[in-house]
């Protein structure tokens, strides 16, 4: 699929403006590409390379390191079931197996209708709320087996629409209002002590 479209390019440029070094924007831009297409397309990576002033190989290098970036199509809904220690103790593996049966796939797989991808996931930072799962990174805490099946049914039938398609993370983005930024400059241009620090004493900085 595609390079970033005009709207996303504007967002990309806004993201880039917040970093003193362009390459730092790489992960947020890869997320943006994934939000646009549901996965990270090769053309999008080439586009990001241009924007970050690096080679396409560097973008692939970074992209392939991180579990959340999918370089091929996945389901509209990515279901991550935690089976790490706290969840394992309270039924995480049973939950995973129930959903495997329900969806007719093994974890790692995608349903034929491309609606669901199921993953056997690591700790989701909800350990006291075991067992837990996420759908497109939205949490379901202390979830019962039947409830989990109902989530799948409701998403499939369209009864549940509160979860955006795979790729969308937080629905609100940061915006620094014009004129409010402290000034983001490359590190080599910011080589003076900040103005609010008192002039150094002869012994150093007093700290």
């Amino acid at each position: 699929m595609a390079r970033l479209n005009a709207e996303n390019l504007a967002t990309a440029n806004e993201i880039l403006s917040r970093y003193p070094v362009k390459k730092s924007a790489m992960i947020p831009l890869l997320h943006l590409a994934q939000e646009q297409d549901g996965y990270v397309a090769d053309d999008a990576m080439a586009h990001i390379a241009e924007l970050c002033d690096v080679t396409p190989a560097e973008v692939v290098g970074t992209c392939s390191f991180y579990e959340m970036f999918k370089r091929h199509e996945v389901g509209t809904y990515l279901v991550n079931v935690c089976t790490n220690i706290s969840c394992m103790l309270l039924g995480g593996e049973e939950l995973l197996h129930r959903l495997e049966d329900k969806l007719g796939i093994k974890h790692g797989g995608t349903t034929e209708d491309k609606m669901f991808t199921l993953e056997d996931y690591e700790c989701l930072a909800a350990c006291t709320e075991a067992p837990c799962m996420q759908v497109n990174y939205r949490y379901f805490h202390r979830i019962e087996l039947d409830e989990a099946e109902k989530v799948i049914d409701d998403l499939r039938s369209g009864a549940r629409t509160d979860i955006p398609p795979h790729g969308t993370l937080g629905k609100v983005r940061q915006h620094i209002p014009t004129g409010r930024s402290a000034g983001i400059v490359p590190p080599e241009q910011a080589n003076e002590a900040p103005v609010w620090l008192p002039a150094p004493t002869p012994e150093g900085e007093g700290s």
Binding site: R18, Y19, S24, I27, H31, F65, Y66, M68, Q174, P194
Partner: peptide, 15 residues
């Protein structure tokens, strides 16, 4: 005051 600083939200990708 003359204290100025930008805080930028950055997010990871699973690792």
């Amino acid at each position: 005051t003359d204290f100025s600083v930008d805080i930028v939200l950055h997010w990871g990708a699973g690792a």
